[in-house]
Design a protein around this nucleic acid. Structure first.
Lengths: 192, 192
DNA sequence: GGGTAACTACCTACTAGTAGGAAGATGACA
DNA sequence: TGTCATCTTCCTACTAGTAGGTAGTTACCC
């Protein structure tokens, strides 16, 4: 039993993931969940507010997910691998074939300010998480970093988003795994 | 003295780079170059045809550019670096802050088939070029590849596109250079 | 009765695309 | 050389459909 507001965000999320901010309309959501357009405006007065709320929810889910990954294993290599496996699964079964914020980041210049700042915040928090895990891994000698953990985190994050793009461009979900696993191999000490 | 058709494609390109396929209209182009909407339809009957022509032109320019890079230097490391420098400059001066095809790749699922196939073709040709340069570099011992040249090419290409995304998300053009240069460092033999 | 969530009905602005015409350039031919 | 037909380019004026958003109403629930 999910609330209507959540259903609206669910549909909006899958539509944004498919085509971005400008590729969905209130009418699309209306059709998808069997509710009138005006009713969506009741929950989210403007499109900008809807997407801002969506990004807030997404960020919250991501941060909770990352935290739970750290709870499941103390090994930084496992933590990073679990993060990548999450996306591998999402892309393979097409349940969430792209990161909402990566999608929106491409449209940054045309996004309402309230949305853009939230997207930027997600990038910051993800980079921070990756940096902390990489640093812990370096201290435990499971990772060998060529650069500082913040820089390596940026490289890894870019690889993940770029791999999503490539998987989509080539229409090959497995390409994502191939790219990110090759990238991880460059960080693992036993890979040298 | 550029033709009207070229001016239309120029404007369309910068609009697509800014926000993607759905973020521009014939009216936008009309306003930008001082020509009526109907006149644009005369040159490009439908939006799908316009963007398909645009991607064709883009691909042609890219392939010519890559070929000229190989003519300028026989050193594979220089060739890759020149390619990255090109984007560094484009992103720094905001003249072309994103790859047209990378932008469109994100919207793949919603693109007209004629456009999508052309975007895919660009990804194929870029991956092929990078793979050939990486392979030549491995043979000349300027690169050390952990994987086959095709796989390493995919990793590098993903890094480039992901770096564009990050630079945009953080609003920091220098981030692109930081990411791709760190990635290149992992391939150079003297970096080990 | 007040709040919430849904509805019908509507608005204005904009979307891609079309019909048909005016202006100028080009080339053929007597 | 004059003129006629054709082609290209751009125009005005229009269409049907969709965009995000609003006003006011009904129904239910605490």
């Amino acid at each position: 039993m999910t609330s209507t507001a959540d259903k609206i965000l669910d549909v909006a999320q899958s539509l944004i993931v498919a085509g971005g901010y400008n590729a969905f309309s209130y009418a699309d959501i209306s059709d998808a969940i069997g509710i009138r357009k005006a009713s969506i405006h009741h929950h989210f007065p403007t499109k900008a507010e809807l997407v801002a709320a969506l990004v807030d929810r997404y960020r919250q889910q991501v941060e909770a997910g990352l935290k739970s990954l750290q709870a499941q294993s103390a090994n930084p290599a496992d933590q990073v691998q679990s993060y990548l496996n999450f996306w591998q699964t999402c892309i393979r079964d097409a349940s969430l074939p792209f990161c909402v914020c990566a999608m929106l980041a491409g449209e940054m210049q045309m996004l309402p300010d309230d949305v853009a700042s939230r997207v930027r915040a997600h990038f910051h928090s993800l980079a921070k998480w990756l940096a902390s895990v990489l640093q812990a891994g370096a201290e435990q000698h499971v990772f060998r970093l060529d650069q500082g953990p913040e820089d390596e985190a940026q490289v890894l994050m870019a690889s993940v988003h770029g791999a999503m793009l490539s998987a989509r461009a080539f229409g090959d979900p497995e390409l994502f795994a191939a790219i990110v696993n090759a990238q991880i191999a460059k960080l693992l000490v036993q890979g040298r």
